[in-house]
Design a binder for these strands. Sequence first.
DNA 1: ATTAAATTGGATACACATGTCCAATTTGCA
DNA 2: TGCAAATTGGACATGTGTATCCAATTTAAT
Lengths: 156, 156
Amino acid sequence: MLSQTMEYSLRAAVYLASQAPRSQSTRQIAKATKVPPAYLSKLLQALSRAGIVQSIRGVKGGMVLARDADDITILEVVNAVDPIDRITSCPLKLAAHGARLCPLHHRLDSALELVESAFRRTTLAEVLAEPTTSIPLCSFPVIAGPRRERAGKPRG
Amino acid sequence: MLSQTMEYSLRAAVYLASQAPRSQSTRQIAKATKVPPAYLSKLLQALSRAGIVQSIRGVKGGMVLARDADDITILEVVNAVDPIDRITSCPLKLAAHGARLCPLHHRLDSALELVESAFRRTTLAEVLAEPTTSIPLCSFPVIAGPRRERAGKPRG
DNA sequence: ATTAAATTGGATACACATGTCCAATTTGCA
DNA sequence: TGCAAATTGGACATGTGTATCCAATTTAAT
């Protein structure tokens, strides 16, 4: 139901958010998130085109979150790589149809709406700020580098 | 997000429900629901193995709903052909993990749960009974055959 | 018994999602 | 200036979902 592509992109986005505002190379991100590096490269390109991350070329380059983590929703990330397409007209294309969906597709679309809404409600910052952080989480080695500022971007 | 396979299977199931308790050949179902016949055949086999439809071989054979339409949920149909698999352990398989999901995957799984619940709440009978029936719907030619009993199965 | 309508299951074909590789380019740094 | 680190984009490889075809089987009706 949820594609690998979505998964990978979200891992990368969350990881970048956790490391913001420092840039990370694709290789670093791939290692931390366990995503195939070459494939991740493509996904980051898509996120870049969508204005979610920003790429920095050349030595010391890498990827950075393009905006504050609390300004990027899960939905944005997902839609950048594998858009949720809502059902807007009956897939059967019957002549008898107006714009109204049949009961079946209406329900299916409602389900899509649920997911879309849930994804829209959550920002990367919120994922990082989760109060259950004491419990084991998908712990990318949360830092180890030189002096870090708190994830979640205090500067606002 | 929702696979063709799901779509097709639901169309077939809803159609069979609308025609119950009469059996329909794969060819008939395919035509009414605009699903590729050969592919539909495979899907019906899966629904049959799942106990959702019953196959009748030989001349005058076909497919029938195996149970009352109000006893079959959308979820059952979907799970028979393209199971919604909830996230039960972190896909990253980090050593630091207990059974608890990280915040990211917890949210993703919550979204899956929303869909699963929505699908579990709706039966085929409810799809057919939708009060908006006056509005154009994915109108399979709702009968034309010999004497029919009301869809929704009056006999309880 | 024969025929025709129908499902079954296997083999195959095609399309798209996933994943890899590499040459070209950009750029920080010695 | 030259080198090495990094992204970019295209080409290619692989895997899985989607779709087709057909021989074998079952069975109603003649």
